[in-house]
Amino acid sequence: MTRISITVDGVRYDDDVQPRTLLVHHLRERLGKVGTVVGCDTSNCGSCTVLMGGESVKSCTVLAVQADGLEITTVEGLAGSDGELHPVQQAFHDRHALQCGFCTPGMIMSAVDLLAENPDPTDAEIREGLEGNLCRCTGYQNIVRAVRDAAATMRAGASEPAPAAPEEAPAPAPAPVEVGS
């Protein structure tokens, strides 16, 4: 057994794991984070995608021990504490970017990762950015539309002046808002 400490969706967990434990199994079976699913188990479909240290990875192709000391974000950690959906989640809902929904957690996490690097991707860049995620219902058109919409929402949010801190007047220049983390 190896002791690991990982922070998942803002909560720290210390656990003893077998080194062979895959991160996705640790998330689902030990921590109950079943929002992250296993599709192919062969590293191809991307449905198990989570952010590790802020970057997308296929959690079926990471050992839990490799995540030691790192921060993990799953699809369960995207919504605000008041339940307000992340712009990418909202856009998937609005654009009907899912049919059976199995690929959705991974698609959303990959889209969040892509938009953190490229806030204004072209359709071609969205398709390429999501190349590690397969949708067996083949709903790619709406997925691309949803990511495009989410990007626009997030850019608009980023350029709104940040609400002034109560004790500070006048308001400071808007800080660039970090998207997608």
């Binding site: 970057e55 997308s56 190349e131």
Partner: peptide
Amino acid sequence: VGDRQVRHL
């Protein structure tokens, strides 16, 4: 190489 996820690791 592969996709974004693979290139991150």
